[in-house]
Design a protein around this nucleic acid. Structure first.
Lengths: 272, 272
DNA sequence: CGCCAACTTGATGGCTGTCAAGTCAGGTGG
DNA sequence: CCACCTGACTTGACAGCCATCAAGTTGGCG
């Protein structure tokens, strides 16, 4: 099992317990089930507390965090949350929706560096140079909490728990990236796709959705870019998984029929 | 040009100005020229100040940092600084020497996730789970400064500059990883090796050494693992670069003859 | 001096990229 | 309501890059 995916599952489970949603995911619905109170959307009332920045904070501390999180911002599908080159001022917590991040080269090549869902943090790439180094694009209508970075640093100096948790979030991003490097550097096409599906499955599970059935928000081309493959190769791998009985595919609707089988692909497909 | 390598150069130059070493690198020597005072090895007297954690701190603040950096640790070539699975307690600033980090899968495959040299920080992968998620191995006799992480967090709450700089260091690691993902996901073998050589060249330059001539500390196999290639492919690419007149290679001794030529490989080799 | 790890080089094969054609689903306009 | 159009996807044929297997060479070290 690849580093990323092993670790992401742990990270997810670490924060999983309090959150429960419908047992079956509804394909076209937002990831997080809407309740009336969530429209107020303060950290203290957010059902993503245990996945997001407030993790581990006391009631009092969360209230302080509330004040810091200034605005919410709605991003329509296809729109950019930020672009490479823009000045960095805030990080973003995804409240609802789904994003991709990508890096572009001058010659036109691009690489999707990640897919992010509710409760995950976007924008930390911008801290190092005060300028965003990648693009963040919404893959469905989404909403994010804007967290001005200088304020977050200020509050981190007051609240040790917040400081430590933020460091963990950044570190988790580094570990996740190492997992992707492992995937890109050592795995074959079908292994990569299997790892990708298992990772998505785990992250949906951590959000209260079905591990077996979900809707892909991204195109084959975006999956391919993330996995270092061409879209045709992704498509062929999907087809072969279906032939083998591991999954059923209908366009973007995925149903995993044999999780164990997919996992086996990861451990046993190494060269003899 | 790949993201990592463009950005690493900037990051290096940002801290470059005060540091000057001999114009020509001496192959088997340590990266940092030894002086008598450096044996005392406190941050306030360290000639890596401008590359390392003290960057941007006032004299007074650096003195505080001095106290925090408890021990120095010598690591012989081939020894581990830490291993995946070990409890995380400190991060490490490389004082002299050269390291690699790698991740292992159960089936035996491994992936080198980076090569680190003097002034760079190791161990941030461990923050997220309180456990190291990769191995750090010295590729030559090395010395690191041990920075207990809880103390660093404590001082970060006092000194805003230190806090911000540490966040930048972590963010830089994320951006670097994105560059490697781009490399692994979109580039061909010769492009990858060219990008790798240019990146090394820039980092040696930032440390006062020659951009044209240096000694590789790692084997072809380790380079291959980092670049997602087999060692034979790395060797062939070296040979071809030599045939084309871009570099001269003698085992681990590299001399870059045509930097512009290597750069051109990166921008122009995209498929039509 | 001899051993061994690291490296180089050649021959061959396979995975995945490339090119091309065709299918499907959803949205638009007549 | 249906035909059409477009973007996303699937599938096939072929080729090329890189992995694999296999010698052979070099340099360092005991």
């Amino acid at each position: 099992m690849s580093g990323e995916f092993q670790r992401c599952r742990n990270a997810g489970q670490e924060a999983l317990t309090q959150i429960k949603g419908p047992a079956e995911s509804m394909p076209h619905q937002n990831v997080i089930p809407l309740t009336l109170t969530s429209l107020k959307a303060a950290c203290s009332q957010c059902n993503l507390r245990e996945l997001c920045l407030p993790f581990g904070l006391s009631e009092k501390e969360v209230v302080k965090l509330d004040k810091l999180v200034g605005a919410r911002r709605r991003i329509k599908r296809g729109q950019h949350l930020y672009r490479a080159g823009e000045v960095f001022e805030a990080i973003y917590a995804i409240k609802t929706g789904f994003f991709k991040t990508d890096v572009l080269l001058e010659d036109g090549r691009d690489q999707v560096t990640g897919f992010q869902m509710a409760g995950e943090i976007l924008g930390m790439d911008g801290i190092s140079s005060e300028t965003h180094s990648c693009n963040a694009v919404a893959l469905e209508d989404s909403e994010v909490c804007v967290i001005p970075f200088s304020l977050l640093e200020g509050l981190s100096r007051e609240i040790q728990t917040l400081q430590h948790h933020f460091h963990k979030v950044m570190s988790r991003e580094i570990v996740r990236d190492h997992g992707v490097m492992m995937l890109l550097g050592t795995m074959r096409a079908e292994e990569r796709l299997a790892a990708f599906l298992l990772n998505l499955s785990q992250r949906f599970t951590a959000r209260g959705y079905s591990p077996q059935e979900f809707h892909l928000r991204m195109t084959r081309e975006e999956i391919g870019s993330y996995l270092g493959l061409k879209l045709e190769t992704v498509s062929r791998a999907f087809s072969r998984f279906q032939e083998e009985g591991f999954i059923s595919v209908q366009q973007k609707h995925i149903r995993i029929l044999d999780i164990a089988g997919l996992k086996e692909l990861l451990t046993h497909q190494a060269a003899p």
